[in-house]
Design a binder for these strands. Structure first.
Length: 546
DNA sequence: CATTGCAAATGTCTAGACGG
DNA sequence: CCGTCTAGACATTTGCAATG
């Protein structure tokens, strides 16, 4: 312990990229799994390190947890003040969120990434998590620690007021977002002869977090370095520094403010000397640690000028300076300027592209704005419009609404205003076109496409399948699933878990399929099943892909 | 009064007994 | 042999009282 702390810098620079202390410990399997890997952590959570309290903290012991509110003032680009808040509401029986849970969360993200970033439930086993967490032992204590950590992540409600951002840097101004970090959690202990032999279950991140993770509203993060940090203050400090120093070589801060930022509220931290006392240990541990954007060259304490406090001073040597891994693709942080647009997900969802097109059209026609980052509400409205009337007609609705609004001197602000004109515009469109196909389109008025994850539609569709159809779809879904999750094929053939997973996948598939396509597609599927023929392409696919 | 060392509180880790 | 259970070692944060 003390050996690793007092390692001279020279030694560390030699072993850079491998974390000198960690390589010495012999853990071949774990090492192989996790050699210097980066994960991408969700940025909103990163920005509030005070969410996590030290596990040893006595200020909030188990059984008497209270909700706490973090607050921060920031100046917007236009000079207006913005007070953002995060309230943490822990559940009494589980206790408050600790740095241990922070470790668990990153481990879940890592596991989720290794599984190919599924947007649905991610299967996991506690044992696997324990390995990823570099837990040394394995026993009921480890199981308990991980289980209760997961429970806290599932149970604790984070209330974000004017603080939860999405990829396009838009803050939900008037909205308050309620988030449980995990929205789904199932822990299964499989017992054979009274022993827990295998464990299976699944988790899923909250939709908000999942969306940001998928859209790359994230920050790269050196998982291994983080997980091997022992001190809890050092741990919090590390993740704080990693974020704040990504574009800095040097960073300093008074310890008083630093402790507030980190959420260390112990009463003895009133005294600068106490802060110094505890920081010294943490700084010693952080010395020479790798950051995603370089190496922490020095971490020290200095007296402030007014002599009333200490300040921490951190210095980083950028990656290029010490050579190792300099070939890395320069890491991009999700800032306003450098958002990595996730083309993949967009290509996958042509409906979204169309919706964006319609929204953009609205802003161009009404507000004469060429570039507009569509908001999710607008997109949802646009999608419902398109589902109802089709792309062409939806665009026409926008134009029609713009025209009418001008006539009546109604100044449309939001895209939603267009919706009021939809039916009139549709009638106008039909009249203009006067063609049979237009009539047919308007007859096919469907319920507004729902964006909620309510799968009742899918369930009822599954129920509506004949046994043969069901089996065909089931096998198809199973094959897809096994391809995604090879471990299923190896370990639990035909198991309850597998069946459940295939079934829920099937439900999701059917649920998300456009209603009109279902019968056709099903017929095609059954046809190809009865007498093998090339599956017919979806009739509207060419239109959608445009 | 600020600083400092120490101890209480609270958590994790580990070895070894035990059991199917 | 593998896993659980448990006590005690160990680690860490924070409160407190002695100290200068």
């Amino acid at each position: 312990m003390s050996e690793t702390q007092t390692q001279p810098e020279a030694v560390l620079t030699k072993n850079v990229g491998r974390s000198a202390a960690a390589t010495k410990r012999k853990k071949p399997i774990v090492r192989e799994l996790a050699s210097g890997e980066k994960i991408r952590a969700e940025l909103n959570i990163e920005k509030w390190p005070a969410i996590w309290t030290p596990a040893h903290s006595k200020t909030r012991r188990k059984g008497q947890v209270l909700s706490r509110t973090l607050e921060r003032e920031s100046l917007a680009a236009d000079g207006t003040k913005n007070v953002s808040q995060v309230t943490i509401n822990p559940i009494a029986q589980f206790g408050d969120l600790t740095t241990e849970d922070q470790r668990t969360l990153y481990t879940l993200i890592k596991h989720w990434e290794q599984r190919g970033k599924p947007s649905h439930e991610t299967p996991f086993s506690i044992r696997h998590l324990a390995r990823l967490l570099h837990k040394r032992g394995w026993g009921s204590n480890v199981i308990d620690a991980i289980t209760s950590s997961l429970e806290r992540l599932r149970g604790t409600v984070l209330v974000w007021t004017r603080s939860y951002k999405t990829k396009d840097e838009r803050i939900e101004q008037l909205e308050t977002v309620y988030i449980n970090i995990l929205s789904k959690l199932k822990i299964v202990r499989r017992k054979v002869d009274g022993h827990v032999t295998t464990e299976a279950g699944y988790f899923q991140f909250d939709d908000h977090i999942l969306k940001n993770l998928l859209a790359n509203y994230t920050k790269p993060f050196l998982f291994d370095v983080f997980i091997d940090i022992k001190g809890e203050i050092a741990l919090k400090l590390y993740s704080y520094l990693d974020l704040i120093m990504h574009d800095k070589i040097r960073f300093e801060r008074r310890t008083k403010e630093l402790f507030e930022e980190l959420g260390l509220t112990g009463s003895s931290y009133r005294n600068p000397s106490k802060r110094k006392q505890n920081l010294e240990r943490a700084l010693a541990e952080l010395q020479g640690k790798l950051l995603t954007t370089g190496m922490l060259k020095s971490a020290r304490l200095e007296k402030t000028k007014d002599d009333k406090d200490y300040k921490v001073v951190f210095e980083k040597s950028p990656r290029s300076e010490f050579g190792a891994e300099a070939d890395d693709v320069p890491e991009k942080f999700a800032t306003a300027a450098a958002v990595v647009v996730n083309d993949y997900s967009k290509a996958k969802d042509p409906a979204l592209l169309q919706a964006e097109e319609v929204v953009a059209h609205f802003h161009k026609v009404v507000h004469a704005v060429d570039k507009h980052a569509a908001q999710s509400k607008e997109l949802a409205q646009a999608i419902s419009l398109i589902t109802r009337y089709g792309l062409e007609q939806a665009k026409f609705v926008v134009e029609f609404a713009a025209g009418k609004a001008k006539e009546t001197h109604f100044a449309m602000q939001h895209f939603g205003a267009v919706l009021a004109y939809a039916s009139r515009a549709a009638a106008e469109f039909d009249r203009k076109q006067g063609k049979a196909e237009a009539v047919a389109a308007s007859q096919a008025v469907r319920p507004v496409a729902t964006t909620s994850p309510d799968l009742s539609r899918g369930r009822s569709r599954v129920a509506g399948l004949t046994e043969e159809q069901y089996r065909a779809r089931f096998e198809q879904a199973r094959a897809e699933l096994l391809q995604e999750l090879p471990f299923l094929a190896q370990r639990q053939r035909g198991s309850k878990l597998e069946q459940d997973m295939v079934r829920s996948r099937l439900i999701r598939q059917l649920d998300s399929e456009c209603m009109d396509l279902v019968p056709i597609e099903l017929i095609a599927a059954v046809e190809s099943w009865v007498r093998p023929a090339a599956a017919r392409p979806e009739p509207e696919s060419s239109n959608l892909a445009a």
